[in-house]
């Protein structure tokens, strides 16, 4: 039985005249892995930023559990709300003035990070290094470690494989698959990498022109008859 965790209802968001989200509806179900796909600039990041509370939407509502409209939360409640999410940002967003250990301490006060580093496939020696000394792929691994370390209710991955070469991308994909499938955590992945979708998505939402134009099981996306979806998949692969 699927259980709704996040309900996005008629979300509207614009910047000046540019409408990014136009009465968008989307349900996110507990313990499922949802991929949001769509062209670059279609508003995928904006949508996730609205969901986690980093950005206020103009109209509509986002509900999470028994919270009805997260736009109405005050500053303090917003902080608590955001702490439910573990986020891997598009460019990792590690604090570049701090070393990796200090970065991870933001997510958990513990002293030893051996276990988590092992999980994301990084050596212990990395703790003393600074983000700028790491490759992009390693930064993503650290970002992932930081996101899951705080044991979030919902994991958000914004383009986890963009900017990586195919080999590293495949490694990251299978790493995420293991983490997601093992812990059964609710996951929202923004991507335009179909490999990610095939690897670890249960459901897929296709975002175009400010709405979810197609929604369905990841297994069935190749059989979709929606022309935009077909073009999108063809365009990538």
């Amino acid at each position: 039985m699927r259980k709704k965790k996040i309900i996005v209802k008629d979300i509207y968001k614009s910047f000046k005249e540019k409408v990014v989200l136009n009465k968008l509806n989307l349900d996110v179900y507990e313990s499922e892995s949802l991929s949001i796909i769509g062209e670059s600039g279609s508003g995928k990041s904006i949508l996730t930023r609205c969901i986690v509370g980093l950005l206020k939407y103009d109209n509509g509502s986002i509900s999470f559990g028994n919270l009805n409209n997260i736009n109405n939360l005050n500053d303090k409640e917003k902080m608590d709300y955001m702490s439910k999410f573990g986020i891997l940002f598009q460019n990792s967003a590690l604090l570049d003035s701090l070393n990796i250990k200090e970065n991870l301490k933001f997510a958990s006060k513990q002293d030893s990070f051996n276990k988590i580093l092992d999980e994301v496939g990084l050596p212990n020696s990395i703790l003393k290094k600074y983000p700028s000394e790491l490759s992009v792929g390693m930064q993503k691994r650290v970002g992932l470690a930081r996101a899951i370390l705080k044991k979030p209710e919902v994991l958000i991955l914004d383009e986890p494989t963009t900017g990586l070469d195919p080999i590293i991308a495949r490694q990251i994909n299978s790493l995420i698959k293991n983490l997601v499938k093992k812990s059964k955590i609710t996951t929202i992945t923004v991507t335009h990498d179909m490999e990610s979708v095939y690897e670890f998505a249960d459901y897929v939402a296709f975002l175009k022109k400010g709405i979810i134009e197609w929604y369905g099981k990841a297994r069935k996306i190749n059989k979709s008859r929606n022309s935009s979806v077909i073009n999108f998949i063809k365009g990538i692969n």
């Binding site: 930023r49 940002f89 460019n91 967003a93 604090l95």
Partner: peptide, 21 residues
């Protein structure tokens, strides 16, 4: 420059989601 860079590279957003004001 420092805070601006942190802003545009989403480091400030990351702080917020890590319960740091």
């Amino acid at each position: 420059a420092e805070i601006g860079t942190m802003k545009v590279t989403e480091q400030i957003d990351a702080l917020k989601t890590l319960s740091t004001n």
